Simulated scan of single mutants.
Amino acid sequence: MNVPGWSARDLEVISRLRQLGGTVTPEAEARERIRKQVLQRLAEEERRAPSKRRRVLAEVLAAAVALVIALGGLGLVLSKNSLPGDVLYGVKRAGESAQLGLTFGDSAKAEKHLLFASHRLDELEALHDAQAAHYSDTLADFQHEATLGTAQFTQLAVQGGGGHLTQLESWASEQQAKLTQVRSSLPGGSMDSYYAASGLLDRISTRAQRLTTRLNCAQITTGVPDELGAVPDTSECRPPGQDAITASQPPLPLPPPPVSQPAAPATTTTAPPSTTPSQSQPSGSVPPSSGMSTPPVFNPPVPAPTSPRTSGTTTSAPPPSLSIPPLFPGLPGVGIG
């Protein structure tokens, strides 16, 4: 057998190896050991494969995120002047939401809401020959942003002073001027939204004015907010310290009304004849006269000091009788003694 490139010796060695392979077969244990080794290597390769796939997938995702960030930044730049109905207008609104999420502080967030509401009116002025739905949607977005900003501003104003209220009132006046300027260019289908937005600005201006007048009162708000935030109280305005003083002092009772009494009739008193006191009969003491007339008082008889005494007993003189005039007309007097 002649094979090109092979010598007779090579062919003989191959023939002998084939014969040897056919007569010698490995034992069962050897075949099982070889099979386990092969399966173990295949399992190791299978475990290594997912890690490689995850690494490749992570690289692909990182590249995709970088591409999205690059396109997003470019999209924000391109969508800066987009209007409702444009392709990039959604990117512009998403950028505003991102700015609001990265803003910290209630005052700063309130200013952002009012700024975005002002942007809606600027877009409304830039719209030309657009559909009525675009005008209505823009006015609805304006009302949403203005309501949120006003609610935060009024709550901050009653807590920290009237600076926010002055700013809010000035902003509402400026937006009302913008809204009046674009009225002639609005289509007929969006007039309901226009009147709703104008009424909202009037309510915001009135709310700011009323809260400003209540800042020096003890009770500024009702304590129950609405969609515009703090609601001004309508009770009587009292200074901040007056309620505390009034609560600490109990109310004084009112004096009774004066009772009109008729004039007492004049009484004629007949004075007894004056007698010269003697040593045997001392004169009695006369009580001082008061401003009001008193009924006559009859002194009981007083025994003379030289009268004979009864043996064994001592009698004391009875107390003088008193007479009290009537306190109210028509009632009898009171006598004691």
Rank of each mutant, 00 (worst) to 15 (best):
G199F: 04
A196G: 08
T213P: 00
P232W: 08
S205C: 02
Q209E: 14
S235Q: 12
Y195Q: 14
A196M: 04
T212P: 00
Q219F: 08
Y194T: 05
T206M: 09
N216K: 13
I220T: 12
L228M: 11
P187W: 10
Q209P: 00
V231W: 01
R210H: 14
P225N: 12
T213I: 04
P225C: 08
L228I: 10
A218H: 15
G229N: 03
L211P: 03
S190G: 11
D192C: 00
T212I: 02
S190N: 06
R210E: 15
I204Y: 05
P232T: 09
G188Y: 09
R203F: 00
D192G: 14
G188R: 14
D233P: 01
G189T: 06
P187E: 11
L200Y: 02
D233M: 01
R210G: 03
G223H: 08
L228Q: 07
L228N: 05
L200Q: 10
R207E: 01
P187C: 09
R210V: 04
A208V: 06
T222R: 05
A208G: 05
D192T: 14
T234I: 09
L211W: 06
A208P: 02
S205W: 01
D226G: 07
L186R: 04
T221Y: 09
R210C: 00
I204M: 12
T222A: 07
R214D: 10
Y194D: 09
R203A: 14
C217S: 12
Y195S: 13
